[in-house]
Computed example of a mutant assay.
Amino acid sequence: MKRIWSACVILIFSAVLISGCGNASDDEEIGNTEPTNEVVQDVVSETVDSGSAEAGEASLDADVDQNGVSEHIVLSGEDQNQDGFTLKLGDASVVVEEAVGVDGKLALVKLNPETTLIAVPESGPSSDDATWFFAYRDQTIIPVGKLEGKGDQLIFLGDGTVTSSRVRGQILHTWFHDQTYRLTAQDEWEPIKQDLYEMNTRVKALVELTLQKTRTNKSESFTLHPGDEAVIKACDDKEWCLVQKGSQEGWFAVDDFNTIRSLNMTSDQVFDGLNFAD
């Protein structure tokens, strides 16, 4: 039996800074993206569960392109393993074969007052939650790409941006961070640049590691000794990580995925407390 939920949420965006980083210079600030001052609109989300998770089918009627005419939207699974799906609106359709673990649900999200998107969530391989998005204009379904995260892991601010709290980090170990995106005129998700991402992972040093003062100043800040406990506060998710021990802060660089540059050792050989998952 189909169930339909509707929710209206008013979200107020505020900038969040990582505490305890007051010693960093201006170019070491965390989360330096500028907050929006625009009025946040209501975010409307309608989710349909067909009651048939095995088939992964759902449908709803909505005026997606805001032309005053309601369209019939149908989501159907491509196989019994819920991999791949077909999305249909009237005579238009699109097939996404690379989707993995489709939840069998549809959602409508209002990106801004002029743009409503269709969202199809998936569980992905290794529980890597993600959501596929589609626009609908001129009787054509337009794929606009996939974002990591689904459900309450995605926050639609109503100003044309969306923040995912489930973006997988690319260096050091398995971790996730927030990332805000905007939809471009070419119907593509564009990440809003951010200098550093909050990590806040507590670790214990296994070997001696000397940390430098800033990313550009190689002078010694302090040294971690075996058994010392510290917090890896933030990372640029490219090369540099910020460590805090009490009131002391310092930086180390990473090559490839998890090689600590100054020691030529992998991160699991240097720190206890990191997480490594598929």
Score class of each variant (00 low, 15 high):
Ser262Asp: 06
Thr161Phe: 01
Ser59Val: 01
Gln244Ile: 10
Pro113Leu: 12
Gln244Ala: 09
Ser262Cys: 12
Asn217Ser: 06
Thr259Pro: 03
Glu148Tyr: 06
Lys2Asp: 11
Trp5Asn: 07
Glu97Met: 09
Ser164Phe: 07
Leu60Ile: 05
Thr86Tyr: 07
Gly145Tyr: 01
Gln248His: 08
Asp49Val: 14
Glu29Met: 14
Phe156Trp: 00
Ala53Cys: 00
Asp49Leu: 15
Ile30Ala: 07
Glu71Lys: 08
Arg261Asp: 10
Asp26Thr: 11
Arg3Asn: 13
Lys2Met: 11
Pro113Ser: 08
Gln194Ile: 10
Ser25Lys: 15
Arg202Leu: 15
Asn112Phe: 10
Val270Ile: 11
Val100Phe: 08
Lys88Ser: 10
Gly84Leu: 04
Val40Glu: 15
Thr201Gly: 10
Val102Arg: 02
Asp278His: 13
Asp272Trp: 02
Asn37Phe: 13
Ile232Ser: 03
Arg202Ala: 15
Glu57Phe: 04
Phe156Asn: 00
Arg261Thr: 13
Arg182Leu: 05
Phe222Gln: 07
Ala7Ser: 15
Ala130Met: 03
Met199Ile: 09
Asp65Ser: 08
Leu117Gln: 03
Ala277Trp: 12
Phe257Lys: 09
Asp159Val: 05
Asn258Glu: 11
Gly104Met: 00
Leu17Arg: 13
Asp61Ile: 11
Gln66Ser: 08
Val144Tyr: 00
Ile12Glu: 13
Pro35Leu: 05
Asp278Tyr: 13
Val40Ala: 13
Ala58His: 01
Ile73Lys: 00
Ile10Asn: 15
Asn81Leu: 12
Val167Arg: 00
Trp189Phe: 03
Thr47Tyr: 06
Ala107Trp: 01
Gln139Thr: 09
Arg182Pro: 04
Ser52Tyr: 15
Glu29Lys: 14
His177Cys: 00
Asp91Glu: 12
Gly227Glu: 03
Leu147Gly: 04
Arg261His: 13
Thr180Phe: 11
Phe271Asp: 02
Val231Gly: 08
Ser59Ile: 05
Ile18Thr: 13
Gly31Trp: 11
Lys2Arg: 10
Ser164Asn: 05
Glu122Pro: 01
Val48Glu: 04
Val270Phe: 04
Asp129Asn: 14
Ala15Ile: 12
Val39Glu: 13
Glu98Ala: 10
Asn258Phe: 02
Ser14Tyr: 07
Gly124Val: 05
Pro121Tyr: 01
Gly151Tyr: 03
Lys218Cys: 08
Val162Ala: 00
Val102Trp: 03
Trp189Gln: 07
Asp256Asn: 09
Asp27Asn: 14
Pro125Cys: 14
Thr184Lys: 08
Met199Phe: 07
